Amino acid sequence: MRAFLECHQYSANKFRMLRRQCDASSGNIVMRILSKRQLKELVLYSPQHIARLEKAGQFPKRVNLGPCRVGWVEDEVLDWLRQRLDRREAPSRHSS
């Protein structure tokens, strides 16, 4: 199992979707999972709208953690938000 967690064995492409970070001292992969409450603080959409976006492939997919618990990978959600910020700052095609 430890071998699976060592970052140097995997290329950046393999984990590009999760953007996992290595803890330099231990070699373990560090990943943070957001709860529904934490997600709502970052993304001001209703749970129903988030579910619609997920189904349409326009929002990061939830991770099933147990029978009654789900979460979202923080880096994926932050990347989604950064994409929206980048679009906001990019010049519009319709601007004069």
Score class of each variant (00 low, 15 high):
residue 70 V to S: 13
residue 33 I to W: 03
residue 51 A to M: 03
residue 41 E to R: 12
residue 69 R to E: 15
residue 67 P to N: 11
residue 82 R to K: 12
residue 13 N to F: 10
residue 20 R to V: 01
residue 7 C to L: 15
residue 59 F to T: 09
residue 86 D to C: 12
residue 9 Q to F: 00
residue 33 I to C: 05
residue 87 R to H: 07
residue 65 L to G: 08
residue 24 A to M: 04
residue 82 R to T: 00
residue 56 A to P: 00
residue 32 R to A: 06
residue 1 M to N: 08
residue 90 A to H: 03
residue 31 M to V: 03
residue 55 K to V: 06
residue 42 L to F: 04
residue 57 G to N: 12
residue 18 L to R: 10
residue 68 C to M: 09
residue 12 A to G: 09
residue 81 L to P: 01
residue 35 S to Q: 01
residue 86 D to F: 14
residue 39 L to Q: 01
residue 85 L to V: 02
residue 79 D to M: 13
residue 64 N to C: 12
residue 12 A to S: 09
residue 51 A to K: 07
residue 17 M to R: 14
residue 9 Q to G: 03
residue 66 G to C: 04
residue 12 A to K: 14
residue 27 G to N: 08
residue 92 S to C: 12
residue 23 D to N: 08
residue 2 R to F: 12
residue 67 P to K: 09
residue 67 P to H: 09
residue 41 E to H: 13
residue 58 Q to C: 13
residue 64 N to D: 14
residue 94 H to Y: 15
residue 64 N to K: 14
residue 68 C to S: 14
residue 96 S to C: 04
residue 90 A to P: 00
residue 6 E to Q: 14
residue 13 N to G: 11
residue 42 L to T: 02
residue 43 V to E: 03
residue 65 L to S: 05
residue 35 S to M: 05
residue 8 H to S: 15
residue 76 E to R: 09
